[in-house]
Each structure stands twice: as structure tokens, then as C-alpha cells.
């Protein structure tokens, strides 16, 4: 994960590039004390992930309302009564997808969790209303069992091995060292049930941004820089009311496009590359979010390094995904 010296840097400022380079070195070399490197990585993520999401939460949430089709299918395939955790739940768009299961969402951003909670309440009231009016809500069960809490993905409060499944969508690519990304997967695997004789354990579905995005307008592809700062242009209130680009149509690709709307492609020359077709006003603040773009095969390697087993994996619309299970079985527990 070394910073490329020949390709033009995609990072919007040299100081940010230095920060990533320093961070990368700190993560990869032994010359820095591990504790110091860890503190540095944490501080970096505070600036370039946590604080950004706190600041952009309402705007971010307004562009994130359509579940990814494959994540939706995974949730709907869970048996009735299943218990699942959504680590990095953001505004909670996956929490009410399957009304026959318990979903508990966690996120590092208190602002996003507050938005997720409002959303859950709305959903609960709407379903209760539908049931009361006899409009067909009762057959599917009116009580949507969802809850949310604030937690760090590396220190999760979930009871060990209590979940039937875990999802973690577009989260782990915000961790700034490989050790932290692998630890994040390790924490997911601690949540899910262990396998037993004749029964497979719980599964963790993980989505991360891919380096290989040859068909997207962002211009990233194989061989490119993997550690980037990606600008988010915080649109003014008026613009925020407009529907995000690319979500009007139907079809499986649209949710993915919607998922990325509001994100501008990084370019070497401009700090804030504007959304195509939308002229940024001088007053629109720009926030830089850190991303590690996964290359082919890297996510599976990280699952193995975290003690997991790859059940299935693939690529969908600019993202790598994996379904992982804990490598341990119940009788091997300490």
C-alpha cells in the first residue's frame, strides 16, 4: 500500500498526501512504536472520517435512502427471528428491510445514529398505522424490531457469538492501516455464532470500495493509488432538496449510483472537484474523507488474516464484497 511516486497524486493537497504517506509508513514499518502508530491512525481517522461524517450527516443521509439490491437480498434471505447487527449503519437504511428479524445498527457517528433512530421510529409508526387501518400491514408483522447505538467498529459492545449474521457496508475502507482493517473484520467475526457439528455458523457480509472502477466516472482503476482523500462537497440547503443524480430510474444499478451521489471524483488539480453539471458555490464547504480502495483479492486476504473463512465473494458496481464466517467451531472455544 505504498504511495505511488510516478503517477500524479490523486490527493487534493500535498499536506494530505504527506499525512497518508506518513501514516502508511507508520503502519508498515517497525520504526514507529506500535502504540504511537495506532494513536496516529486513530487521530487521522478522527479528522478524515469521523469528523467528516458528523459534519455532513444530514446531507449524506439525504443521498442514502435506497438499499443496495444484493444487501437487501442477503437480509431478506435470513430466517424469521434471526438476529443481525449492522456495523456502520449510517442512517439505518438497512434496518427495516426484513421485518421478521431483529436488526441492531451501530455507527461511530452520533449524528448519523440519531438520524437512523428517527427513521426507525417513523417506520414503526407507519407499520403500526397500516396495521390499525387494516391495509395489509398485519400479515407481515407490524412490530419492526430495530435499534441503534453509537459504537466504534474496533470496540463493539455486542455479546460475542450472539448474532445470526452481521453486515458491514462501506465502512472498513475508512480504516487507515491494514492492521486496523483486518481487526475490524475480526470484530465482525466475533459477533456471529460459531459453527457446530451439522450447523454452519453466522455469516458476515462486507462491502468495500474497489480500486477497479474502470466504468465509473471517478477514473480509478487497477494499478492506481489505493489510499485516497475523496472530497465531499456539502451542498447548500436549496440544492440538497433536489433528488440526487441517477436515482430517478429503475433497475439494479440505480441504488449503486445513488449511493455515490454527492461524491466528487478526485482530480490532481482541484481540491474540490464539483459534481458534474452542478456548479459549486463558493460557500459550499468541502470535506476530505479517507478511503482505502481494495484491489482484487485483498478483501479475501484480510478475511483470512482475521481468522475467517470466505464463504463467497464477488464484485458489484465498483465494490468488492465477501460473505465470511468465523473459522472456529463451537467446541474449539476457550
Amino acid at each position: 500500500m505504498a504511495i505511488s511516486s510516478t503517477a500524479p497524486s490523486a490527493l487534493p493537497s500535498s499536506s494530505a498526501a504527506d499525512a497518508v504517506a506518513k501514516l502508511t509508513a507508520a503502519g508498515a514499518e517497525t520504526e514507529t512504536e506500535p502504540a504511537a502508530a495506532e494513536a496516529e491512525a486513530e487521530a487521522y481517522e478522527r479528522t478524515h472520517v469521523h469528523c467528516v461524517y458528523e459534519a455532513i450527516a444530514p446531507h449524506f443521509s439525504a443521498t442514502r435512502y435506497k438499499p443496495w439490491p444484493a444487501v437487501g437480498s442477503f437480509l431478506r434471505a435470513q430466517p424469521p427471528g434471526a438476529v443481525g447487527f449492522d456495523v456502520g449503519c449510517g442512517n439505518g437504511k438497512y434496518l427495516g428491510v426484513n421485518p421478521e428479524i431483529l436488526m441492531v445498527g451501530s455507527d461511530r457517528s452520533a449524528s448519523l445514529v440519531a438520524l437512523a433512530r428517527s427513521r426507525c421510529k417513523e417506520l414503526q409508526n407507519r407499520q403500526a398505522g397500516a396495521a390499525a387501518a387494516g391495509t395489509g400491514g398485519e400479515a407481515r408483522g407490524a412490530a419492526v424490531a430495530t435499534d441503534v447505538l453509537v459504537a466504534d467498529g474496533l470496540s463493539l459492545p455486542f455479546r460475542e457469538h450472539s448474532a445470526d449474521f452481521v453486515i458491514c457496508v462501506a465502512v472498513i475502507h475508512h480504516m487507515s492501516t491494514r492492521a486496523r482493517r483486518q481487526d475490524a473484520i475480526r470484530q465482525l467475526l466475533r459477533c456471529v455464532k460459531l459453527g457446530e457439528a451439522g450447523r454452519t455458523g453466522g455469516q458476515a457480509l462486507v462491502y468495500v470500495w474497489a480500486l477497479e472502477q474502470g466504468t465509473s466516472r471517478r477514473g480509478w482503476d487497477e494499478g492506481g493509488e489505493q489510499d485516497l482523500l475523496v472530497p465531499w462537497v456539502l451542498k447548500s440547503q436549496q440544492k440538497q432538496q433536489k433528488p440526487p443524480k441517477g436515482v430517478k430510474g429503475e433497475g439494479t444499478g440505480e441504488a449503486s449510483a445513488a449511493d455515490k451521489s454527492g461524491e466528487a471524483p478526485p482530480t490532481p488539480a482541484t481540491a474540490a472537484a464539483p459534481e458534474p453539471g452542478v456548479a459549486p458555490s463558493h460557500t459550499d464547504p468541502v470535506f476530505q474523507r479517507y478511503y482505502h480502495l481494495y484491489r482484487k483479492g485483498e478483501l479475501e486476504q484480510d478475511v483470512l488474516a482475521a481468522g475467517g473463512v470466505v464463504v463467497s465473494s464477488g464484485y458489484e458496481r465498483d465494490n468488492w464484497w465477501v460473505v465470511a464466517a468465523n473459522g472456529l467451531v463451537a467446541h474449539e472455544r476457550r
Binding site: 403500526a128 400491514g137 455479546r159
Partner: peptide, 19 residues
Amino acid sequence: SDDVELNQQLLVNLLPRID
């Protein structure tokens, strides 16, 4: 206390997962 519609099947299905 929230006013939540009773979902009997969900409760029965959740029961084995509860400590």
C-alpha cells in the same frame, strides 16, 4: 413505553436467541 403492535411470530422466533 413505545406503543408497538404485537408480532407474535417474531417473539416466538426470537425466544431461542435470547439469553
